[in-house]
Structure formats: C-alpha cells, structure tokens
Write a protein that binds this DNA or RNA. Structure first.
Lengths: 244, 244
DNA sequence: ACCTGAACACCGTTCAAGT
DNA sequence: ACCTGAACACCGTTCAAGT
C-alpha cells in the first residue's frame, strides 16, 4: 500500500506537465472513452460494413491495440448492445396523433427493421442482446403506448412488445442474410421444391413455388405485422374455440 | 491432357491393390463423405455443444486436416443447413387427427423450437439458412396441411408458414442466448427499467418490471403462438377497421 | 484422382510490463 | 494509475504438393 502511494507520487513527476508536442500536433487521436469507442465503431460500420467491425479493426481505427478497448468495454456483446442503442437514436419515435395507432405501429416497426437490416450483422446481435439503453426504452415506450391506445390490456401490451419487436428483428436478420449471398438464394429453394417427392409432400407440390414467391417482400412484411396486430387484438378470452 | 492420362495410368501402379494394413487395423477411420461429415458434426455437438463445432474441430474428429472437408462441403453455411435438416429427422411429424389442428400446431412448433434451442448456435444458423432438405420440407408440409385444415386460404397458408417458423426459430435463438450468459440476464433489464426516467418513459415506469417478468416462459410462448394463429385466422378482408 | 500439410489472413481476450 | 505490446488460443478457407 505504502509502496503504491510512493509510486503514485513518483508518477506525478513522470506525468507531462504540458500537452506533449505529439498530442498537439495530432489532435486526430482523441482520448479513449466508452463514447469515443462507440463513435469509432459507427464510423467503421458506415465505411466498411458491420461484418468488418471487430475488436481489432476498431482498435486500429482508434490507433491503439485491441487490449485498450477492454478498459472501457467488457466484451463484444456489450459493445454491440451499446452500438444498437446508439443507432436507435436515429429513429423517429414521435406520435402526434395524426396517424392512427395502427399506421404508426407499422411505421415504427418497419423503421426499426430497416435500421437493423441496413447494418447486416447488427440484426443478429439485436436478437441475442437486450440493447438496454435509453433509446431502446424510448422505442419500447412508444410501442406500448400505441398498444394501450389500441385498447389492449396492460398484460397483453407487455407480452406484445416482445412479439412485435422480435418479429421485426428476426425479419431484419433473415432479410440481410438473403440480401447478401450469405444464405442461399430463392432459386435453390424453388429447385428443392421442384425436386420434392409428390407422394411425400403432396400439399407442397400442389401449392408449388408460390410458397416462396407469393407476393412482394413489402406486401408480405406488411401482412405479417397486420397479422400480428390482429392476433393481439383478438386477445385472450376472445380466443376462438378449437375445432378439429 | 496427354500428360494427365499418362499420370493417371501411372497412378494405377501406385494405388494399393489390397487394403493397406493400417486401414484394416484401424477401421475407426471411415472413408470421408458428406454423410460421414454430418454424422461427425452431430457427434461433436452432442459431446461438446454446438458452439464448439468448427471446421477445424470437425476435421480433428474425423482424423484429418480441415482442408479435407472442403472436398465434400462448400462452406460453413452449407454444413449448417445440412446439419439442421439431419436434426429435423428427429421430429415427430405425424398427424392422426386425434389432436386438433391447433394443438398439433402448438406441438410441432414447440418441438421445432426445442430442437433448435437444445443446440444453441444452431437456431442462429436456421435463421439465416433455409435448411433445404427433405426433412425441412416434411416440416413445412405438416404446417401447411394444418393451416389448410384450419380453413385458411392457400395464399394465407403460404405466408403463414414463414411467419410461424420464423417465430419458432427466433424464439429458440433468443432463448438460448439468454439461457447461457451470452446476453445479459433479466436482473440487468429490471435494473435499467428501474433507472428509467419517469418523465421520458411514463408508460414503462407505470407498467414496471412486469414487462419482462409477466408470466412464465412457457405461458408466454404459448400465448405468442395462439396470438399468431388468431391473427392468421382473422385473415385479410376480416381485418378490423383502423380507428384512431 | 483424390486428399491434405502448410500457409494466409484473420479472430477475441488476457496479462505482464511500460510509462 | 492508466494503458498496451505481445502472446495465447483459436478461427475459415485456399492451394500447392504428395501419393
């Protein structure tokens, strides 16, 4: 302990009393901080795409070694959570009442989806991470508010946020995977379907390729959200009786 | 070309005319093949977990170098697709009519979800890859059949399979992420919510932590599937009028 | 022809050592 | 005290070379 104090005092001597020349000449390298790291991450994503964002590349962007990042960020998961929340700040989350709750819900969900889809791997991260920042809370706040004004119970509203945001996130993840050639494309799928055994898959062969191609992407995603909303409005109690 | 032929002929001389001793003594190393690779992958997953499955570890399991795998498998994505389809063979996909279509749908979706959730990272892969194999088609076949017998149109059925399976997959991915400590746990979330600004998030603070904790996991996932089904049954045309 | 050793170009994370 | 070079323990994929 005493040794530590002595050492600290000694350090005062070593500390530069004025800004060193190199600092003044290269103001391009700002002091590290959580915010600076997230900023740099955003820059890397914008410039090279989210799949290029790694701890090492981020360190290079900040002109240090990767070890330095771990002073401010626990791990990659935490960085992603931070990043998503920051990105969420771009969302328009106002509701003046000019739009119906249903239209507003459509808009905020597809905005959110588009935001994640633009940044590829981020949608993936969002599925695994609760981006527990103020901006994410803003988003949840708006969705709950819209649901309550649609007349659903508080319990249903609580459950519905999860369902709606999960759908939006999963759609973004799926969409980005297929947009780049990471997954297979639709040609492979229709091929598989064409080669399907009519005895083993009678219903599918009857429907044909329409399963994958029916409607545009936009139509389908609008339909999905409407379906979700309708299901939420049907609510418990009003659940249809099961008939065999 | 001529050189190649000469070389090939020369190779006949080099080829062992009988099984070499080492082959007969160690029948533990079977010939490589697509099927053998998928088998080995399954073994690795069962023994060490899906997150330990890498090309290199798989090669070790098969007692070769990683390069050898690329003779039979294009890349990691293709391997995952193959693997998921193989796993899907475990699913019970029969329907004798003793169960109602709704109950059967519940069962097949949670079976599918549980299958993916048991193998952690696999759910993730399933979200990005269309596991275009016969077993996946069996699954789609059953879901479409159930939907049609529920009385929905072919168009709606086609769109609904996507929605239902996407939900099941996303739930599995989310669940596995939170089950292991990969993401944060719920304590962090309630903490975030407790620290939320009541002015900025009035609706959320009013609802409190119930947003995350309301109901058990099982209740919530049953509710989600019922909600999806209700929405699908509501269908287009019967869409409720939007009221502001 | 079929298979693979070795290399290429990367990762996330830790920790001893520097100032 | 704060920061980081260098190392640890890995990755997926390719390609020249071996038999």
């Amino acid at each position: 302990m005493f040794v530590t104090i002595v050492f600290d005092v000694a350090m005062i001597w070593f500390m530069p009393r004025t800004e060193p020349v190199s600092r003044r000449e290269r103001p391009a390298k700002p002091a590290l901080s959580r915010a600076a790291i997230v900023d740099a991450a955003l820059r890397v994503i914008e410039r090279e795409g989210a799949h290029k964002l790694t701890m090492r590349r981020l360190a290079t962007e900040l002109d240090t070694g990767p070890a330095s990042l771990y002073v401010y960020v626990k791990n990659t998961t935490e960085l992603n959570a931070q990043l998503i929340d920051r990105l969420l700040a771009e969302l328009d989350l106002s509701w003046d009442g000019a739009e119906s709750w249903r239209e507003r819900l459509h808009r905020v969900l597809s905005d959110y989806s588009a935001l994640l889809a633009r940044r590829a791997e981020l949608a993936n991260a969002a599925l695994h991470v609760w981006p527990d920042g103020p901006n994410y809370l803003d988003l949840v706040e708006l969705v709950v508010r819209l649901l309550l004004s649609a007349g659903v119970s508080e319990q249903t509203a609580a459950r519905s946020v999860d369902l709606l945001l999960q759908h939006a996130t999963a759609s973004a993840a799926e969409w980005t995977a297929h947009a780049r050639e990471e997954g297979q494309d639709i040609a492979d799928l229709t091929g598989t379907l064409a080669g399907a055994d009519p005895t083993r898959h009678p219903t599918l062969t009857a429907l044909g390729a329409s399963i994958f191609t029916e409607g545009s992407h936009l139509e389908r995603s609008r339909w999905a959200i409407d379906t979700l909303i309708d299901g939420i409005l049907a609510g418990p109690g009003r659940r249809r009786a099961t008939k065999p």
